[in-house]
Design a protein around this nucleic acid. Structure first.
Length: 259
DNA sequence: TTGGTTGTTATTAT
DNA sequence: AATAATAACAACCA
């Protein structure tokens, strides 16, 4: 699931559950999700530390504490939950942080594609985020145009490239291009000025409403509500949608609306 | 059993 | 050299 709006939701959960709280205990059920830090060192550096204000860049969640900074990525199946310590643990709860308020913050992830890492300084945080472009939620029109400049690849792939701008995934990109009526196979640097404007506007609207809900919603009025149907029809014009493999992902689009 | 998955990274191709 | 397109990763489901 996790694209920018989902991670923004996890940031809120983190803030409500753990901000200003002390980590009483760190339990690592599966060290396979730890990157560049051992179970022992994570416990040593985090237990007794107090969390500060968490923030997000693209699909990364950064949670500073007065001990070390925890950095989470949710891959395709990760999530973050604020539980009571009595809630029964689930099979995929990989890391559990027990906080001073009796709550537990659980990093749950079925597949272990990404995971948890730590950074001991601002410079170490920067290093992890170094390859990320500007955050898609706050990128301006002119920054957006600059990001697309000289990109010969398909707009679909370019918008999913986290180094161009950070936060968009497969579902969001399809939704945005459908709203902007731009075909996903178009070359990014071949878009007219008005098309770039429409894509930027659609991106802002899609992201803001998804962030408000806390996830990418499957709505009937959105493309997302139709993409998994056996013979999906465009919710705008009723013509059949196409499902193609593009830039390595399943891409759903409307050949009648998008050019 | 095979094919597919809303993410990233390393490798290969252009 | 810089970009773009693929394969691989892990674990599960249909």
């Amino acid at each position: 699931m996790p694209e920018l709006p989902d991670v923004e939701c996890f940031r809120r959960i983190m803030a409500d559950c753990a901000r200003d709280r002390i980590v009483e205990r760190v339990d690592v059920a599966d060290a396979g999700v730890l990157h560049g830090v051992s179970k022992q060192r994570l416990k040593r550096e985090l237990e007794g530390s107090r969390f500060g204000e968490p923030w997000r860049h693209g699909k990364w969640l950064i949670a500073p504490s007065d001990g070390t900074t925890v950095i989470l990525h949710f891959g395709m199946t990760g999530s973050l939950l604020c539980c009571s310590r009595d809630d029964p643990p689930e099979a995929h709860d990989r890391v559990i942080l027990t906080l001073g308020n009796g709550r537990q913050l659980r990093y749950r992830d079925q597949r272990k594609l990404q995971g948890l890492r730590v950074a001991g300084s601002d410079a170490a945080v920067e290093k992890i985020l170094a390859s990320q472009g500007p955050d898609a939620l706050t990128i301006s029109r002119s920054e957006f145009n600059t990001a697309l400049e000289g990109r010969r690849g398909r707009i679909k792939g370019v918008l999913m490239d986290q180094s161009v701008m950070a936060g968009l995934g497969n579902l969001l990109v399809d939704e945005i291009l459908w709203r902007a009526r731009v075909a996903p196979a178009r070359r990014a640097d071949g878009l007219a000025e008005h098309e770039r404007r429409d894509v930027h506007t659609a991106m802002g609207r899609v992201l803001r409403s998804a962030v408000r809900v806390g996830c990418v919603p499957a709505r009937r009025s959105w493309l997302t509500g139709h993409r998994d149907a056996p013979h999906p029809a465009c919710p705008r014009c009723g013509q059949p949608l196409r499902r193609d493999r593009m830039s390595g992902r399943t891409t759903v689009w409307c050949p009648h609306c998008q050019h």
